[in-house]
Design a protein around this nucleic acid. Structure first.
Lengths: 118, 118
DNA sequence: CCAGTATATTCGAATAATCGCATGTTTATC
DNA sequence: GATAAACATGCGATTATTCGAATATACTGG
């Protein structure tokens, strides 16, 4: 069972392991959107967006609802939004620790060597 | 900036998009472990484990600490554990909704058609 | 310095992900 | 039924992941 759970988790992660798909999920953050709107906001090829949406559907990350001509997408479970929020905080935490690291390194190395010395 | 953040998130997800690497992170959940212990518990090739550890290092998901002969790994930020916990709950939620879906389908289709009808 | 243990890296083959382009399918309108 | 709009799917090329096997590196004890 623990195996199936790991498999499941890794598939979710795989579903999100792409900047375009993350962008889609973030666009869906505040409610459903039609595929057309998503494509417009993403500024990518229609077919490409559709493929990414297919991946998100396959991993059960989003669900779709057809209304007449259009298909509306929404996030299946709010838990995933939580995950993105955690990572946002994590990102800024890492960022500031990296900045501090760089500052420290700068203090310790008096000659930063910009340009190409002979 | 939003772009860099998405890139960052997708790299974290990519780092976790593999059952073995999830297993590693879970083994590190309760504190640091040597590479050797991890390999032993995972039951995989040494080189393979080392490659996965390299991926986790590259994505900054784990940090390593060398003590004499051995290398101790630990999770860089507890936030990632939170993420895994959220997904565990998510998994069971999806599981039970899937089971309910199957039950419903079973009730609605009286002849489940096992075998190959002519 | 030599042998052994712990870990990392490199290489090659197999598989999977990504993209653009072309083509299908479904629905609405005339 | 013909045309157009909104999506989805299939295909081929390119690139990335994954794994095992072999090899390299770092440290320890003699």
């Amino acid at each position: 069972m623990a195996d199936a759970l790991r498999q499941f988790k890794s598939e979710i992660f795989q579903g999100l392991a792409n900047p375009t798909r993350i962008a889609i999920v973030e666009l869906l953050r505040d409610g459903e959107q039609s595929a057309g709107k998503l494509i417009e906001k993403l500024g990518i090829e229609q077919a490409n967006a559709s493929q990414h949406l297919a991946v998100l559907r396959a991993k059960q990350i989003v669900v779709s609802r057809k209304v007449g001509n259009q298909v509306y997408y929404s996030i299946r479970d709010h838990a995933l939004i939580e995950v993105l929020d955690i990572l946002r905080r994590y990102f800024y935490a890492q960022l500031s620790s990296t900045v501090n690291m760089l500052r420290k390194a700068a203090r310790e190395e008096p000659k930063p060597r910009t340009g190409t010395p002979r």
